[in-house]
Design a protein around this nucleic acid. Structure first.
Lengths: 410, 410
DNA sequence: TTTTAATAATTCAATTTGATTTATTTATTG
DNA sequence: CAATAAATAAATCAAATTGAATTATTAAAA
């Protein structure tokens, strides 16, 4: 039965890979608490009886859990709802001030530090622009920015900060060529562990994740996640990236690069196989503009201030849409996603045009045997990456996550 | 924050999609029991202390669980292992006779009914060939075959049958054209629910799953699953199909079609975008042989009796490998699979040549930004689909499955 | 060769945790 | 006032953990 297993490619293979660890009572409680909070978050507000029905837990269990969460300040009771037979129900909702967390977004032209509350509102914010990102500069921006923001909080509020989540492109050094940053300068990112560096200079827990994956996470918690249990997310930035949600959970994979989407093979307009990121990225539009003697700078001032560049923009949109349509069909035949979510560093009217073009292009492909996912626009907006970063510490402490139940077996 | 969510494509969208239900004590126990059995299965045999270390559960808990499983006849104790300091350990292994289950494979030219034991050995077997599969014939074969096999078992053994698992291609009627079956006859599969029909005529629980997904499941439990926590699986039959394993669990997706892989977009030799199944399927080889005036029948007698057709076979292998290489790279940029497993309805030497050709072809693609999965041969062999079918009832009752912990909230 | 120490596997008994069950109270509509 | 639904208190039950004890073995010292 288990005769031979092929000789494998290059990497070494673990002898036997164990499934997750065991479950116990304490973990069940932690899991159920997170479940309750996730349900409340999803629906805005729910009564204890509602939660009991939706979770399948007994009313008493839910009552105990929710009273504890209320006592901890995580939940707040709303005004009793009358008008139906029986005792009025008391809707419970998340206390926006229960938990804060920092989100950092590192971009090609700018860097953001935001303080987000428990329901996803940005409360405080710092912004810095740069010609190209440098490790030392970014590090100071973060570790000096944090106390700067904290001076605007009370002692009590500072105690409710869950941590710092950094959303950054991976392998920053490989940007150099296309973005015009000096190669030697960018090479300094190699071997520089930003997470460790920040962690060494703040007492908050620090988490780091790919920027597109983070934006995807923001969409899961605060955007389309409530409507779609699984989706593939594309974030069109300087380079296109993405993320994946399965069973209402961010799936980042064994190596953390699931949903990278950039290297997806698509056919270009000449029918040649090509990587998706060589077509559906903003740097391509930038080059297109330069070729036509147009100054591409307006692309970088602010995502909301693009001007309509006319023909080159339309050309780029068409090529991008054709490539994304293929990518969506391919991904749908691997995982039956219920939606493909499109967002990026551009204004809403560009996103709208891209989505419309993708829908059109997808309709023209051979769809036999595939169920085409709903192709929709992202709902979170320009700060998706920073918000996704900020939600990392929330994920790790308050949001539903199957892994809460199982022990680490290291 | 949650302003607009795009207008969606065609399908209707649920208002809010809830996460899974709550967890409780009984379910924790059920989960831990399955975990113990999965660990024992993976490793062949393990002592209680080994299980405690690997699961993170306390020694006492493991002791209680395993004694109960032994009492139920699911586990057997082996000979004490001496030679190390301390009390000798008692290796526990699965009792092969603890549970039996039926597996059905419906194929283009034949149908199999097997009785599998708890460790994946086929104990009894029926085989039937046909020009093309017809609902009534298949149904009689199954419901008459079951009592036929059961007459060879003792009363006691019959009581230990977990159920029937059917592995079948979906949408059988859409085969007609390429396989030369009469279109009207195949149309009878439309609206025929084989699962219900079988369930109505046997007292065993009946489960059904796509044939390629089933083969993938067999590979997970009895094949390469122990070495790779996540992989994409390709089964090259009349039409190529596949399956997906994530976190050591079969992922079949919302609609059950995850891992269908057939509609994956790849470039054909002329650079045109084409569906994978139009290139990497055995019916293509069949047509190739016919074009050259060669009788393709040897393809269908038995998977192990192919003859070397020379040039047309080599051509098909090269085209198939080129297409699969692209499919693997695309899938790896969506999910960072650790392996791509190749199997199909052909002899081992063909599989070997295909895998070698894929490795070569993959090396020639643009791999920037992707980690190429190990490309390996399937380890289970010709009966993978039937074995995968038979393991469905095992999955549903004895194998680890995160869902065991959570309530159905319907 | 005998004795003693160390170690590992296993199990027993008591404790703790947390969900469920049952019964009760409260607030509302019709 | 009857019916109904929400919420909760007390008692019960299931299962994992903790700490201690038992058993079987090897390794090393006398």
């Amino acid at each position: 039965m288990t005769s031979q297993a092929g000789s494998g490619g290059a990497s070494t293979v673990p002898d036997v890979f164990d499934p997750g660890g065991g479950a116990n009572l304490t973990r069940v409680r932690a899991y159920n608490e997170r479940l309750v909070m996730s349900l409340v978050r999803r629906h805005g507000s729910l009564s204890k009886a509602d939660i009991a029905r939706r979770s399948g837990l007994s009313a008493q269990t839910v009552s105990v859990i929710m009273r504890a969460l209320e006592k901890d300040g995580l939940l707040m009771r709303g005004d009793p709802v009358r008008g139906r037979v029986g005792q009025p129900s008391i809707p419970m909702r998340l206390n926006p001030d229960a938990v804060y967390s920092y989100g950092v977004k590192i971009g090609r032209r700018s860097c953001d530090l935001v303080l987000m509350d428990f329901v996803g509102n940005i409360r405080l914010q710092l912004h810095q622009t740069h010609a190209y990102p440098m490790p030392e500069e970014i590090l100071s921006f973060i570790v000096e920015g944090i106390p700067k923001l904290e001076r605007m909080l009370t002692e009590e509020q500072r105690g409710r900060i869950a941590g710092v989540g950094i959303a950054t492109p991976f392998q920053l050094w490989s940007w150099a060529e296309e973005t015009g940053a000096p190669r030697e300068a960018m090479a300094r990112w190699r071997g520089f562990d930003l997470r460790d560096a920040v962690a060494a200079r703040t007492h908050h827990p620090v988490l780091m994740q790919n920027d597109a994956t983070s934006a995807c996470g923001a969409e899961l918690i605060f955007g389309v996640g409530a409507s779609y249990p699984d989706f593939i997310y594309f974030y069109i930035g300087s380079f296109i990236g993405g993320g994946i949600v399965l069973n209402s959970a961010l799936f980042s994979g064994r190596s953390g690069t699931a949903g990278a989407v950039g290297p997806l093979q698509v056919s270009d307009r000449n029918g040649k196989p090509q990587q998706l990121l060589k077509i559906a990225s903003i740097f391509v539009l930038e080059n297109l503009l330069r070729e036509r003697g147009i100054d591409p700078k307006p692309l970088w001032y602010s995502a909301d201030e693009w001007i309509d560049f006319g023909e080159p923009l339309e050309t780029w949109i068409q090529l991008t849409a054709a490539a994304l349509a293929q990518a969506i069909v391919s991904s749908a035949s691997i995982i039956d996603f219920s939606a493909a979510v499109i967002d990026g560093g551009f204004p809403g009217w560009v996103r709208e045009r891209i989505v419309a073009a993708i829908r059109k292009a997808a309709g023209e492909l051979d769809l036999e045997g595939v169920i085409l996912p709903d192709i929709i626009e992202g709902a979170v907006g320009a700060q998706a990456r920073a918000i996704g970063g900020a939600s990392l510490p929330l994920f790790s402490r308050y949001l539903i996550d199957t892994n809460v139940l199982f022990k680490e077996t290291a």
